[in-house]
Simulated assay, not measured.
Amino acid sequence: MTGIDLANGIVGAVLGIIFAILFQQPLQEAWFRVRRRSATAVRSLTYRQDDASLSTWSTFSIGPLHTSALIVEGDGEQAIAPEAVRVQVLDAEVALPEEMAPWRAEIEAAEAQVEASGTRVRVWNGPRYAVEGLEFSRTALDEQATVRLRLRPTDYFTFLAAQQLDRRLPDGTTPRGRYLDPDHPLDAPAFLQCSFGVNVAVVTADHLLVVSRRADNVRSGPGLWGSSVNEGLSRHIDSAGRNAPDLYEVARRGMREELSLEPHEYTLTMLAFVLDVERRQWSAHFTAHLTGLTGDALRTRISRGVADRWEHQSVEYVPFRPADVMRHLLRPDRVRRWAPVTPALFHLALVHTHGRGAVERAEAQAVRRLRQGRDHNAR
């Protein structure tokens, strides 16, 4: 080894020591930060995937029939007793946010113009209820469902304004994007939930399910096939004096107004609470079994006049057996023409009468036949 090589080796060793002292610790810390951030990102991604796979908030569907109805409480097998439901009406009326208030003013002005021009009948701004909150629990001994429904006063024009969930606000957002979280569907401000109604699946004494089609001139779901009876809560009608509305009484009012049926002519059972997550409309689901009237007798009754005939343009009678109802729900000309909460209503009513096992077998068989038919046509 020459003197030059020795000198170069000494200089290299000295520079290596200096480099290690100055840069080794920062490099190690930077590498540690990169590893930690990567691990955190992987854990975050894994958590989100696991969280999504474990979500119980799935809307009701049967094969190709997909709805926006979320069954929040009730499985059809166990009834919800009248005394288990507590309804509370709060004092303060619902107010739209400042940026949505002009939408309501537009609706009010448009209806005033309609009345002045006489082009059609003006929409009545009826007093309604908005859902402030809906809470569910179980009794300690027998684990029966208990429900607490909190309502606030509102009106129909506020409801129509709040239904514009995908309309752009001044900042470019929408009410759906700003105020609603799809991962927490039960969390929503009251001004976006200005609708609560009842839906009833009516079964005649000779075991026929009554299926109605909504009129083309109604504002909500025109032309769609729906429940036997559909009725919204009205502050004017359903709250006598200062009493809170009784959901069973609302259902009985709907039975009387839409089918001319009196309480002594049927048994009424509450099955579930359901939320249409797309439109933010709540519903209590009931089934009613007529004790004496057959399908023919009910047809005759309806032909003699009903109070709200204008709401429905036609009525069908389907054998109330799981296989028949499933075929009816999945008919190619019908599968996309159902009101959002109706398939879930008919499913729950079937479960209540025939049991979950029989209903799920019929649903699976109906879907399997549809797929076999498509495969056969494809060949």
Results as ranks from 00 to 15, higher is better:
56 T>H: 01
44 S>R: 13
63 G>P: 02
47 Y>G: 00
68 S>D: 11
70 L>M: 10
50 D>W: 03
74 G>L: 05
35 R>G: 01
36 R>Q: 12
51 D>Y: 09
61 S>N: 02
53 S>A: 08
70 L>C: 06
45 L>F: 15
38 S>E: 12
66 H>E: 11
45 L>D: 13
56 T>W: 06
49 Q>H: 08
48 R>M: 11
33 R>L: 12
34 V>A: 02
71 I>W: 06
74 G>R: 04
73 E>W: 10
57 W>K: 06
51 D>I: 05
62 I>Q: 01
41 A>W: 14
40 T>Q: 10
65 L>D: 07
62 I>M: 03
64 P>I: 08
34 V>M: 06
46 T>L: 14
49 Q>R: 11
33 R>P: 03
63 G>I: 06
52 A>W: 15
51 D>C: 03
72 V>K: 02
36 R>K: 12
38 S>H: 11
56 T>R: 03
35 R>T: 07
73 E>I: 15
43 R>I: 14
37 R>F: 07
68 S>M: 02
48 R>I: 14
61 S>D: 01
43 R>E: 14
61 S>L: 01
60 F>G: 02
40 T>V: 09
59 T>S: 04
61 S>I: 03
45 L>C: 07
36 R>T: 15
35 R>L: 07
62 I>F: 04
68 S>I: 03
66 H>Q: 10
59 T>L: 03
59 T>K: 01
48 R>C: 05
61 S>K: 02
50 D>R: 02
49 Q>I: 15
42 V>N: 00
54 L>T: 15
49 Q>T: 15
45 L>Y: 15
72 V>M: 08
69 A>G: 01
60 F>N: 04
44 S>N: 10
55 S>V: 11
47 Y>K: 04
65 L>S: 03
